[in-house]
Structures are given as structure tokens and as C-alpha cells.
Design a protein around this nucleic acid. Structure first.
Lengths: 211, 211
DNA sequence: TGTACATCAGTGAACGCGCGTTCACTGATGTAC
DNA sequence: TGTACATCAGTGAACGCGCGTTCACTGATGTAC
């Protein structure tokens, strides 16, 4: 994605900080205005810079979005690695508990509001789905995430003395699907559905005692 | 939602047609620009009207979106009713086939591009999630949809001589989750995952032969 | 360590386009006799 | 059925704001001696 050339000047610490603050602010603005509705002006104001600083760091809004997707991928990989490490050192736990750990690993740690993070991520997804040149890299990212989750949940069920009754990659898709769906229900304010209960039903249905 | 007052003049056929064309055009524009990125100008051009016509029919863009959500709900209900009717007259079918009918009932029939329809619906969802005054009506709509699907799939599994191993409402959430998730994968161009196979795994896992 | 200079990073004013919104208008549709 | 008039529906020009983008600038940071 990044067209890093050998002759590019290295970015200073100050510059990196500015880029980071702009991207963090943009995430919040994207969450409540949508990507197409977020103005450069509003992003800069939220970050505490003027618009000139923005154009000094990013070619245009599209370049910012690209950088944010890359950054989001990096955080996700980091979170996955942490989760794998946690899992390896985890003692005996209940099946549900282990799967909860595995899945929660894919929610960003950070100090972000969960609602804001969720909305921002959906915006990035929709944006990537619409822009032809972003679609393929984004797809590759998602695919990679799923193989990492596959490794995690395989470990998790083994620790719990269980095994899947469906192919592992199907299990991963279904777990991710349930996760996303339940998050969506929260997003629109549904309180009648008990997310944990639904999730437990799924886990119970697709696992059994290992022989 | 609609503040219909008794003294409102009835809308003429011509007016209804104009509103309809504007909303149809807006759906396409929303799909590839996003709701905040769609300009009134572009919507009008796509529909073959001038901007004046737009403001003669809708207070502003927000009013258009509201009308579109209402319209979308109406179509969904109509589709659900058709599906219920189809189900009642259906003979013996395989379990997967029946569930496929049940779920496909919730995809709009019409002549719409499926990709466009999907993107537009996601935009409407995100928009409703963001606007406080739209959230509750939208949630009510989604909840209603799920109870209609519940009725459908209950019928479907019974026809197939099966029963759910999880509570019916959990089954519905999981089926809907899988459906949405697999559509999302299509949206970002994933071809490695076989949607039908994943779906079959889920159906197999949450059903068993009825005694 | 201190000074002089060069480069870097962000400022803020300016420009101009596009878009939302309004409104006086005209052609189309409907109605009364 | 035809004519005269009223209302309705969409036109297109106009206004003005906000926003993307540029650029000459200044203060901050780094470097050479």
C-alpha cells in the first residue's frame, strides 16, 4: 500500500506525533459524521491544528484514510499477538471464557470509546468496499485476521478439552459473524437480545467434548 | 415517524412518482458516495430532475433519508409476507433449501443490483445508528424483522422434520448474523470463503431430527 | 557551550468551486360552467 | 365538448456559505564550527 521509496526522508518524531493526532481525531470525526461527511477543517480543529498542517502531512483526505486503514491493521495484528501470548500462558478456563478471550482480543484495547471505535471501523470497511484500489488490500487484511483468530480459537477449544463439530475456518467465520452482529444490535440500541446468551448458544452448538 | 396530519393535502400520482424516482436514484448515489457524501445535485441529476423539484418534495436531505428508511421497511415487510405465503404452499424440501428460502425472503426482490442494495442498506443502518431520533424506530424495525424471520424459520425447520437445538430467537440471530457476515465478505471481494458451505455448517450445528 | 545558519513543521490568509437552499417563473394538470 | 381560470409541480437562475487546496510566512528544531 505505502509507496515507500528508498530516498524518502525519515519522518521526525514531531511529524509522527502530528500525523498520529490527526488520525486519532479523524477516527472520532469519522464515527459521527461518516467518512464522506467529515471535513478536513473539523478533523484539524479536533486535533488542534490548522488545515495547513493537514496538507503538510497528507496529500488529501483519501491519503489520510489510507494511512488510517494501515494503522488499524497494525493495531489489530498487535492485539492478536498479545492475545496469542495471553492464551499460551492461560491455565484451565471454561470454554466460553476462553472463546471470549479469543474474540475480545480483536477489539482494540486503547482508551477509545467502544461505540466510536465500532462506528469508525464500519466506516473504514464501507469505504474500502467502495474504493476499488482499497478493496483487495483490505480483503487481504481481513483474511489474515481470520487465520490469526483460527489459531487462537483452535488453542482455546483445545485448552478447554473441546473440539469443533464444524471445520475450523467455518467456526471462525461463524464466531466473527455472531460477534459483529451482536455489536450491530448494540449500535442501534437493542437491549432485548442478550449477546452473551446468543454467543453461548453458538459455542455450544459448534463444539463437543474431545474424545 | 411520519408526522401525517389530517389536513395534509393528498399527494397526486405525479408527485408520488417524482418522490419515488428521487428515492430510487438516491439509493444508487448513497451506495457509491455514502449518505453524507451524496449531494442533492447528484441525486437530482440521476433522477432526471432539477434541485427545485427535490426541495418541492422533501424538506431537506435528512427528510429524504427518513422517507427512504420508511420505504425500505415497507418493502421488507412486503417481502416477508410473500415469503410466509410461499412457505405455506411449499411441499417437502431439504432443510437447507427451506432455510435458504426463508433467508432470501429478506433480500429485496426488485431489479436492484445486489451490491448496490447492500451498500445502500448499510449506509441507512449507520445513519440510523448515528442519528438519535432515528435509532429507536430503526431498532423497532429490525426487531420486527427478526420476529417475522422467527416465524418463517420455525415453519421451515418443521417442514423439514427438524428442530432447533438452541432457542428459536438465538437461532434467528445466528442465521441473520451468518447471512450479514457472508454478504460483507462478498462486498470486500472475498472469494476463498464458500458462503453456502459455512451456512450449511451453521444449520447442521443448530438443528437435529425432530423426535 | 555558544553562535550563525539551514531546514523543517505548522500558521493563517486567500482563492475559488460546489453545493444547499430560495424563489419568481412557466408549463402542466385539474375544475367549473 | 369547449373555454376560462385556478392550482399544482417542476424549472433554472441567483445567493452565499463552507470547504478543499495553495502558499508566502514565521517560529521551532537541528547542525556546523
Amino acid at each position: 500500500l505505502s509507496q515507500q521509496v528508498a530516498t524518502d526522508p525519515p519522518i521526525s518524531a514531531r511529524r509522527a506525533q502530528t500525523r498520529d493526532r490527526l488520525m486519532t481525531a479523524a477516527r472520532a470525526v469519522f464515527a459521527d459524521r461518516g467518512i464522506p461527511g467529515a471535513s478536513v477543517e473539523e478533523i484539524c480543529e479536533a486535533a488542534g491544528y490548522t488545515r495547513g498542517a493537514f496538507y503538510s502531512n497528507f496529500g488529501d483526505k483519501s491519503a489520510l484514510v489510507l494511512a488510517m486503514i494501515e494503522s488499524r491493521m497494525a493495531s489489530q495484528y498487535a492485539a492478536a499477538e498479545r492475545a496469542v501470548a495471553t492464551m499460551k500462558t492461560a491455565g484451565d478456563r471454561s470454554p466460553d471464557e476462553l472463546l471470549a478471550i479469543a474474540l475480545s482480543a480483536f477489539e482494540l484495547a486503547g482508551s477509545e470509546e467502544p461505540r466510536e471505535a465500532l462506528l469508525a471501523d464500519r466506516e473504514l470497511l464501507l469505504h474500502a468496499a467502495r474504493e476499488p484500489e482499497l478493496r483487495e488490500p483490505y480483503r487481504a487484511f481481513v483474511t489474515d485476521c481470520f487465520s490469526q483468530i483460527a489459531a487462537l480459537v483452535t488453542d482455546a477449544v483445545a485448552h478447554a478439552g473441546l473440539e469443533f463439530t464444524v471445520p475450523v475456518d467455518h467456526a471462525v467465520q461463524l464466531l466473527a459473524a455472531a460477534h459483529d452482529h451482536l455489536k450491530t444490535l448494540e449500535l442501534i440500541g437493542d437491549t432485548r437480545t442478550d449477546p452473551i446468551a446468543v454467543f453461548e448458544s453458538l459455542v455450544t452448538a459448534i463444539t463437543r467434548q474431545a474424545n
